[in-house]
Design a protein around this nucleic acid. Sequence first.
DNA 1: CAGAATCCAACGTGATACTG
DNA 2: CAGTATCACGTTGGATTCTG
Lengths: 119, 119
Amino acid sequence: MNKKYAIECKSCEINCDRKKELCSYCLAQKIIRGKWKMLIIRHLKDGSVRFNELNRLIPTTPTTLSRQLKELENDGVIERISYNEVPPRVEYMLSPIGEEFKKVMDSIKQWGDFYINQL
Amino acid sequence: MNKKYAIECKSCEINCDRKKELCSYCLAQKIIRGKWKMLIIRHLKDGSVRFNELNRLIPTTPTTLSRQLKELENDGVIERISYNEVPPRVEYMLSPIGEEFKKVMDSIKQWGDFYINQL
DNA sequence: CAGAATCCAACGTGATACTG
DNA sequence: CAGTATCACGTTGGATTCTG
């Protein structure tokens, strides 16, 4: 198991008897924590999207969007393809890991609906 | 739909065509964002736990743990029962909404396993 | 035991200006 | 178009001390 992506779960190291299980949670939490990451993944669900297009869909600054995209890329959740064109064109899309995350998104949506119905 | 719990998703208001779907995501993100919340829910999965017991399982200070517990309670995810005893005894457990969240936890675990296998 | 109060440091996000 | 650099700021979490 080489360190392709960074995974570290301090909590697990300290107190988890079922390391792998807890790591999954911390892993997901790490990805979900970023303010716009859920939204990014949601907007990439149906295919690749360009940077500015994404920025129109997500109400934050290019600075922040760029940072969050880079983090998602480093975590292996999305992929970035840069075409050598003028004007520049860059497309973002889900990686296999990101595709797999759609299932989590679906269960989150179900739970959210349940939550809203309780109000 | 009375405002029992606070829900507001600025992103949805601004740019979402499928409001309810996105709200679910933002909702979940808002609730899970706290550094220890996933871990709290994970440790309450199998039944109620007392404050100090929880604090032994989760490597943070009582101050922070208390804050996150209160937030989870306000968001309707967990419940707090205080027994009138000396010394004091307080138990935390999942609410119905919290129980429902276990499905999300399960899908997260599956995803985490998939993730780890990609390394 | 189960916390509350207070203060502080660190981190994440946003605003602004600029660029290949 | 797709960013980067820099700075300012608010929110979060942690340390410490104290209490019913």
